[in-house]
Deep mutational scan, measured.
Amino acid sequence: KKYKIKVYVKDKKTKKWKKIKEIEVDTKEEALEAIKKLPPNYEVKIVP
């Protein structure tokens, strides 16, 4: 079972969220580790 991490950042001009990358991992633990490495201003969604 794979997890997709969708990473969004808020556009300063439009104030809208835009997706900047998608990370695919195998476990939820890996997903949480990957999220920890991202800057705090990123919004993250984990999709099972």
Rank of each mutant, 00 (worst) to 15 (best):
K1D: 07
K1A: 11
K1P: 10
K2Y: 09
K2M: 09
K2C: 08
K2H: 12
Y3T: 02
Y3A: 01
Y3S: 01
Y3W: 14
Y3L: 06
Y3P: 00
Y3G: 00
K4T: 13
K4C: 09
I5V: 11
I5M: 05
I5T: 00
I5G: 00
I5Y: 06
K6Q: 12
K6E: 15
K6L: 15
K6W: 14
K6F: 15
K6G: 06
V7R: 00
V7P: 00
V7A: 03
V7Y: 05
V7K: 00
V7F: 07
V7G: 00
V7L: 06
Y8E: 00
Y8H: 00
Y8Q: 00
V9C: 05
V9W: 06
V9G: 05
V9P: 00
V9K: 15
V9N: 04
V9L: 10
K10R: 14
K10S: 03
K10L: 10
K10E: 05
K10T: 04
D11F: 04
D11S: 10
D11C: 07
D11Q: 05
D11T: 06
D11I: 06
D11W: 04
D11G: 04
K12G: 08
K12Q: 12
K12F: 10
K12L: 12
K12S: 10
K12C: 06
K12I: 10
K12W: 11
K13T: 08
K13M: 08
K13F: 10
K13V: 13
K13G: 07
T14P: 01
T14M: 06
T14S: 09
T14G: 07
T14R: 08
K15F: 04
K15G: 14
K15D: 08
K15C: 12
K16N: 05
K16C: 10
K16Q: 07
K16G: 04
K16E: 05
W17R: 03
W17D: 00
W17F: 06
K18D: 02
K18Q: 07
K18Y: 13
K19P: 04
K19S: 03
K19C: 11
K19A: 04
I20M: 05
I20H: 03
I20D: 01
I20A: 03
K21R: 12
K21M: 15
E22D: 06
E22K: 01
E22L: 04
E22T: 10
E22W: 02
E22H: 03
I23T: 04
I23S: 02
I23W: 15
I23M: 11
E24M: 13
E24W: 14
E24G: 09
E24I: 13
E24C: 12
E24R: 06
E24A: 08
E24Q: 09
V25G: 01
V25M: 05
V25P: 00
V25A: 07
V25F: 14
V25Q: 01
D26W: 13
D26Y: 11
D26F: 10
D26G: 09
T27C: 04
T27R: 02
T27K: 02
T27W: 02
T27I: 02
T27H: 03
K28C: 15
K28G: 04
K28M: 15
E29S: 07
E29W: 11
E30L: 08
E30Q: 12
A31P: 00
A31R: 01
A31F: 08
A31L: 13
A31I: 14
A31H: 01
A31D: 00
L32F: 13
L32R: 10
E33G: 05
E33A: 11
E33M: 08
E33K: 08
E33N: 10
A34H: 12
A34C: 12
A34I: 15
A34E: 15
A34T: 12
A34W: 15
I35S: 04
I35N: 01
I35G: 02
I35V: 10
I35A: 09
K36V: 05
K36D: 07
K36F: 05
K36H: 08
K36G: 10
K37M: 11
K37I: 07
K37Y: 07
K37Q: 12
K37E: 09
K37W: 06
K37G: 11
L38W: 12
P39R: 10
P39H: 07
P39K: 07
P39Q: 07
P39T: 06
P39I: 07
P39L: 11
P39M: 08
P39C: 06
P40G: 12
P40Y: 08
P40S: 12
N41G: 14
N41H: 15
Y42Q: 06
Y42D: 02
Y42G: 03
E43K: 15
E43W: 15
E43G: 15
E43Q: 15
E43H: 15
V44S: 07
V44I: 12
V44G: 09
V44L: 05
K45A: 09
K45R: 15
K45Q: 11
K45G: 03
K45W: 15
K45E: 08
I46V: 11
I46K: 01
I46M: 08
I46G: 02
I46P: 01
I46W: 08
I46F: 06
V47K: 05
V47Y: 12
P48D: 13
P48W: 12
P48G: 09
P48Q: 14
P48L: 15
P48V: 15
